[in-house]
Design a protein around this nucleic acid. Structure first.
Lengths: 351, 351
DNA sequence: GCTTCAATTGACAGCGCTATCATCATATAA
DNA sequence: TTATATGATGATAGCGCTGTCAATTGAAGC
């Protein structure tokens, strides 16, 4: 037998509503799921019984009985990062109206926490799973392959997607940012990175290869930290880099928060941006366009990424498994050219 | 009968694992929930069967059978706002280790969306519900009162908490910020606000009353917008305010994002902060301390708020309903005094 | 009048798991 | 040796809901 847990009053259930409305439980269920199948007057009676009893259906029972959860599981690497907030908004905007509930867990950039999150989400029997990363643990990968639901890996690109991969080449983006600075005539171009997750590593690799290609590579120009990225950290990393490389002409920042920290640190030190220092951010967050000077950044189509992820998932779930032709979709990115970068011609920073 | 939905392979269940391990289903369940009650060798056999079958327990079935979900429902007003991100982090840090799963829904500052979110969460039969607001719709309030679980309302304070209320007086905070500026000798003190939700309204009320009290009130000094707050909006509101009140000496911003926009707009216009313009933010987000100039702001104990919310919830759930003496806890706030505000003595801004 | 059909409503089983109690070994005490 | 305690495992009965199909009703068709 089941021992009811101490509670003021046991929550009312379907049969309670049915009793009060003078119908059978099935009819109440139907009035809730497909109202058009129940006569109007009955529907009304049932609705008022529901209100009277403050009835709320038990999701667990419903999921168990119907084996459909209407849950879309999402694992994001961070909740603090503006990129993910925007991406999540796009997902919500697509899934909510379609009757799906988006369930978000945070992996904090840790593959192990991601694995735990995946297990938790799979336990909910979601209709689809969306991951904001492409590098899963082997066990997570195996679980996902057996899950029998659409799996979307986003943000980055991978050659071996589990199911569907929608993203951009972080490597190419890092490369583009670096080439932009090189083309401006800069030679001593530093890079700032926080928390070397796979995406950041790829950006750094793009930078490194671009520098090597032009014979400009110097290990001293890389400054990074294991700590999560903050505006404060941006200033600190920049200071450290500058004291090691006083001839620094430009910095490529792993994200816009770090870049903002650099802008402030420059202001504090009286270093003029872009006259004495070019600064490039990454992600093109909202503030990048309205900072002073406005920040040159890599614009990532995170909204489109979210929209497309949702669209594809919905198509697979509803349409009888009509999958996109390619399982790897490259959405590309743009350089948002603003005032924080400039030709090195008229420069004159000497420590 | 139940028609299994098309799926590559039906997900394996408890009985499959039991079969493979040569034990009964109950034993497998036990090995999962209370491993110490199962002999080591059996546990091992079961574990390997679980791995082999990539078995993941069905949460819905578990919740239904045990009537405990281990879910803590949280409704936040925004995911983009740094305050909530920090608050959520504190909640996660407390609940995760205790074996609870935090489920977050976003109300986007809309009471109606909040109501929907509350219904959705109550459907999960959560162990507790945490709301980052104090003004619920009447229907939501009724549902919550009948829910029979701990309900925490946070961020703001209310005289009629549903259950437990942990927050700060937004009114007093607005008042403090304003008095700070008045004490610095400023008389033409503007206020910028985005999206007048209940919290912001209270802050504005605190400002208004403080100004009236000193005979400084002027409606022209309030600039607001219904649009969500962004850095860009901060600059725009400031510009609008300045063109209406060219004699403006100081601004109190509804939050730090707006304040950041003001700092940038000032830089763009060559207005020196704090020499020609004092700026106060709200929330004391991470960047406030490292901006240039560093931003004076109202420091809200959002981490402590999260920690305490979780602590109280856990105590009620575990300890047999030992509720705190008071149902309304005022955590207070501080003025984080930095470089963006200064005595008006040496001022000299003339348009 | 009687069949035929659609529109409503109801009966029943079962989704996958866990709480409870019974059962069965094994160890300890008498 | 037998009684008793202890620990490990199994049998059973639901948790609250929905899929299926049967039953009922009234209207339409012959």
């Amino acid at each position: 037998m089941h021992m009811p847990r101490k509670q003021r009053r046991p929550r009312s259930k379907l049969s309670d509503v049915a009793l009060r409305a003078g119908v059978s439980a099935v009819t109440v269920s139907r009035a809730l799921r497909r109202p058009e199948m129940v006569s109007p007057q009955l529907r009304e009676r049932i609705d008022s019984a529901i209100k009277d009893l403050a009835y709320i259906p038990n999701r667990a029972a419903s999921i168990l009985a119907s084996s459909r959860s209407s849950v879309i599981g999402v694992v994001v690497s961070s909740l603090t990062n503006g990129v993910f907030a925007d991406y999540l908004r796009a997902l919500h905007d697509m899934f909510q109206p379609a009757g799906f509930q988006v369930m978000v867990l945070n992996s904090r950039y840790s593959p192990l926490e991601e694995e735990k999150a995946i297990v938790t989400l799979l336990g909910q029997r979601p209709e689809a799973l969306i991951l904001t990363d492409v590098d899963q643990t082997p066990y997570a990968r195996e679980l996902l392959e057996h899950a029998g639901i659409p799996i979307i890996q986003t943000m980055g690109l991978t050659d071996a997607p589990i199911d569907i991969n929608i993203g951009i080449s972080q490597y190419d983006a890092g490369s583009l940012a670096t080439h932009h600075l090189i083309e401006l005539g800069h030679r001593r171009i530093g890079i700032l990175a926080a928390r070397l997750d796979s995406r950041t590593r790829n950006r750094v690799a793009g930078y490194t290869d671009a520098m090597k290609q032009k014979g400009l590579h110097d290990e001293a120009l890389l400054e990074w930290s294991a700590v999560p990225s903050t505006v404060k950290l941006g200033g600190e990393l920049f200071s450290a880099l500058l004291s090691r490389c006083p001839d620094l002409e430009a910095v490529f920042c792993g994200n816009d928060d770090l870049a903002l920290g650099v802008l402030f640190e420059c202001a504090r030190r009286g270093i003029k941006v872009p006259e004495q220092m070019s600064v490039v951010g990454f992600n093109d967050l909202e503030f990048a366009a309205s900072s002073c000077p406005a920040l040159t950044s890599i614009a990532v189509p995170r909204h489109e990424m979210g929209r497309l992820s949702a669209e594809i998932v919905l198509e697979i779930i509803r349409g009888s498994g009509a999958r996109p032709k390619t399982s790897r979709i490259d959405l590309g990115f743009k350089l948002a050219l603003r005032d924080s970068t400039r030709m090195s011609a008229q420069r004159g920073l000497k420590v």
